[in-house]
Write a protein that binds this DNA or RNA. Structure first.
Lengths: 216, 216
DNA sequence: AACTGTGAAGGTTTTCACAGCG
DNA sequence: CGCTGTGAAAACCTTCACAGTT
């Protein structure tokens, strides 16, 4: 029994985790450009952040730099990938093979980063068997077996808003622990599941605030 | 001359602005469901937030509720739309008519929310004249005149990463003040311009942190 | 009785500033 | 000398708790 108020072990702030992929992205670019060393100041220039913030963020995970010199680009890049769990590939399944789902399947940005959509599902039985890119659309009733056979942990939701929460609940029931949701809703998920929403309309709606007199 | 350290007029925190569109979304749904009154507690349930946060957020802009009763759904909805500047439509232009650009043009979610893509551009002259949905692809050299004729303030960027910063600079030079960027880069813009990035890969990369042992 | 609006408290994140290392 | 890593300070954001209104 402690006299002081209970304070759980200081975790890494979520905002920090959200920034790590940005670091990965610029480091990847720097590596492609054959840069071998970079300082927190230079990283800050590229990302429009303060050098102190970058150093503090990295310090949550270890000591990756060299005083007087900076960070080794490739070393820091690989450390960050390991921390984020993207030093290996991830399989994902897609739910919803409409216009949006098709665009997601054809989006060339996922697989170079190690995210592979290995399977697609749609409630519409007419779409079953259709080939989109290299993926064949399957019936929703095959979802449990496919998820378990391929050990899929990520679900990408591209169904209409009205069905999205149901689909999300269904995915979670069958073992999905990460969801990338494209439906324009505010989904409710247990704390054991990580969800990210892709919602360009929300982005535009907060943008317009700053584009009106009111926002200045 | 004050003794106290200078503190600029307390602005509304950006996180608050980012949440307002969420309130708009659930209020819209509630209105469609013929709900007329809602409390901060109920809103909190729907959005997985504390009632105090919702009340505090709203208090930055005025007093919209009634004690003992809650908020009038339609009234609050319209106030929030006015605050965000979405009580009227916004015109946007799209740059990049490749696979991604085509998906954006065909995405049915923008126009019901008042965002209309009135024009599309591509550097590839072979695409000029092509019709995508109801929009005809134009040459980049027509961009300045079209932006000015239609008073377009929003640019949607769907070009390859290598060209994105150039395109963004170009848009800004010709009067665009809001940018929705789909290219996987960390763009640099002046403080007079508001930018939002749509980047599902970054979302996935922060998600996997929490899906690994490390993230628990 | 049921709720809002809000100062104040509490908690979190950013920035500062400098010791210490290469 | 130039830079990192990091306690401490400052700034920022969330939650509490309750006076006040309907």
């Amino acid at each position: 029994m402690s006299i002081e108020p209970f304070n759980k072990y200081t975790e890494v702030p979520e905002v920090v985790i959200l920034r790590l992929p940005l670091y990965v992205r610029v480091l990847t670019k720097l590596d492609e450009d054959r840069e071998t060393v970079i300082s927190s100041y230079q990283l800050g220039q590229l990302l429009q952040m303060t050098p102190a913030q970058i150093r503090k963020d990295l310090s949550y995970f270890g000591r990756f730099g060299k005083q007087g010199r900076g960070y080794n680009v490739l070393f820091l890049l690989e450390e960050l990938k390991r921390i984020l769990g993207i030093d290996h590939g991830w399989k994902a399944c897609l739910i919803g093979a409409g216009g949006l789902g098709r665009a997601i399947l054809n989006y060339p940005g996922f697989s170079p980063e190690g995210f592979e959509i290995v399977s697609a599902f749609d409630v519409d039985e007419y779409k079953n068997g259709m080939l989109i890119g290299s993926v064949r659309v399957q019936s929703m009733k095959d979802l449990p077996i496919i998820i378990s056979q391929h050990s899929i942990k990520i679900g990408i939701v591209a169904v209409p808003a009205s069905q999205a929460q149901n689909v999300i609940d269904h995915l979670i029931k069958h073992g999905i622990t990460g969801i990338l949701n494209y439906a324009p809703i505010a989904p409710i998920v247990p704390k054991t599941v990580t969800i990210r929403n892709v919602d360009p309309v929300l982005s535009l709606q907060s943008m317009t605030f700053y584009m009106t007199e009111r926002g200045k």
